[in-house]
């Protein structure tokens, strides 16, 4: 089985090498064919691993997004014009976000689109515009050599695909494919962390009779049933039907859960992330304020710089 990955890697390396920008003419079509064959082979192989189970994710979207992501990624590294690279990278981000949706990580998907595609990529585009030659340069085939010609493409492809070969061998070396593990019971999570979400659900379903405005209202699980309590001897037992379970689970979304996890298990990490952002902001300002020495056209850019700040 491992040999399959090695062949695929060699094939993929050939494909990427062929499509990378170069001064010499290369049979690009051959590269496209080799790439398609590699990707198709890999996906066919993974499809053979897919198994039947009661729980799981529809696979079609996975394949669509993977193909999109990989093709866009190849274009990112092979397109001679940085603007297009950046736009293809937006495509990669969108595909990855789609893949997150298949993984039930809705918040992450949208965060990815908003932050990456929206914020970071726009910054890249700004910088590309600021620091590139005019588009006419590319049309007249006078694009700078550092965009026209890839640097040591053969060695890079070899190394990159050797990495991929090793990684894929490791990924598929486990005997049993790993299947999703269920998350913690939503009702337990709700009782422990967000009890205030339960009451509206219960009221909406007309499942509770005791005074829900009581300040001491608490919930707990007992023998598979939900117990609402407003003090000793004033308990109400609520049988958890599957409808009720689902309603409670739905009342706590992915954002709630990520937020809880983030602020319960990774508080220090959040603080550190904030510090890193602050420091990088300070650093960026310091860099931008710096006077350029040695550049011929330094004075021309001064105005732009002031505006950026």
């Amino acid at each position: 089985m491992a040999y399959g990955f090695y062949i695929a890697s060699v094939c993929g390396a050939l494909a990427v090498w062929l499509v990378l920008p170069s001064d010499r003419r290369k049979p690009i079509m051959l590269g496209v064919i080799a790439g398609a064959a590699t990707l198709g082979g890999l996906l066919l192989h993974t499809a053979s691993l897919a198994y039947d189970a009661e729980q799981g994710t529809p696979s079609l979207y996975y394949y669509i997004f993977t193909v999109l992501a990989v093709l866009s990624a190849v274009r990112v590294i092979s397109h001679p014009r940085p603007v297009y690279s950046a736009l293809y990278f937006v495509m990669v981000v969108l595909s990855v976000a789609g893949m997150f949706l298949t993984l039930e990580a809705e918040f992450m998907a949208f965060a990815m689109i908003i932050i990456y595609a929206g914020a970071i990529l726009v910054t890249y585009l700004f910088v590309i515009m600021l620091a590139s030659l005019p588009p006419s340069a590319y049309e007249s085939h006078e694009a700078p050599a550092y965009d026209r010609v890839a640097r040591e493409p053969f060695l890079a492809c070899f190394v990159g695909f050797a990495l991929l070969a090793v990684l894929s061998s490791i990924i598929f070396s486990s005997v049993d494919p790993i299947t999703p593990r269920p998350e913690r019971d939503a009702v337990t999570v709700a009782i422990e962390q967000m009890p205030d979400r339960i009451t509206p659900v219960l009221l909406a379903q007309n499942a509770i009779n005791i005074d829900t405005n009581h300040p001491d209202l608490t919930y707990r699980m007992e023998e598979g049933a939900l117990i609402a309590s407003i003090g000793i001897g004033a308990d109400e037992r609520i049988e958890l039907t599957s409808d009720l379970r689902e309603a409670i689970a739905n009342s706590i979304g992915n954002i709630d859960r990520v937020g809880l996890n983030l602020f319960e298990s990774h508080t220090l990490g959040i603080e550190l992330a904030g510090v890193i952002l602050l420091v990088s902001m300070v650093g960026a300002i310091v860099i931008a304020k710096r006077k350029v020495t040695g550049g011929n056209e330094a004075s021309r850019h001064e105005g732009t710089e002031a505006e950026v700040i």
């Binding site: 040591e152 890079a156 190394v159 050797a162 990495l163 090793v166 490791i170 070396s173």
Partner: peptide, 15 residues
């Protein structure tokens, strides 16, 4: 590239 080669070597050793 050298760094990547190092990573590959370690991973291959693990594998």
């Amino acid at each position: 590239v050298v760094m990547a080669i190092g990573v590959i070597a370690v991973l291959a050793f693990v594998m």
